[in-house]
């Protein structure tokens, strides 16, 4: 949802549906490389990630590849804080993203829905 705000500041219409899908182009520069880095990192595919990191560094620059992974590492932690404390969306975000959440599947992750689904 912050990607949408970022797009508005950049006057760029990113395809947000591609965020929740396993393929697709959001329109973010080097999105393919960022996707590969993140997916290998979160899946814990460390061997593959070494090769991806090297290739991504050639495409985007070494510092950019490292920075992308620092962001991924941070969100691998903070998403767990949110999930473990059951915090709701901030009111402004909840109000401004009703259609977006439904259309790209984020509502499936809502804590009430998970409790209903998994007990």
């Amino acid at each position: 949802m912050l990607l949408r705000a970022s797009g508005e500041r950049d006057h760029t219409d990113y395809d947000l549906a591609a965020v929740t899908q396993n393929s697709g182009d959001t329109g973010v520069p080097h999105g393919d490389w960022l996707r590969k880095l993140v997916e290998a990192a979160i899946a814990g595919e460390w061997g593959a990630l070494g090769d991806i990191r090297r290739d991504a560094a050639m495409a985007m620059g070494e510092q950019a590849a490292v920075d992308a992974l620092t962001v991924a590492a941070a969100f691998n932690g903070i998403t767990r804080v949110a999930d473990a404390t059951g915090i709701p969306l901030d009111t402004s975000t909840a109000e401004s993203t009703v259609e977006l959440r439904a259309s790209i599947g984020i509502d499936d992750y809502a804590y009430a829905a998970k409790t209903e689904r998994y007990g």
Binding site: L2, D10, L34, R35, V38, A64, V71, R80, D108, Y111
Partner: peptide, 24 residues
């Protein structure tokens, strides 16, 4: 203050959130 843009950063963050099925 990174070598990737704010939009690239938000994409990485959002993709991690999706993979971890995080609502927030």
């Amino acid at each position: 203050k990174l070598a990737i843009s704010q939009a690239q950063t938000e994409f990485v963050a959002a993709r991690v959130s999706a993979l971890n099925e995080c609502f927030y």
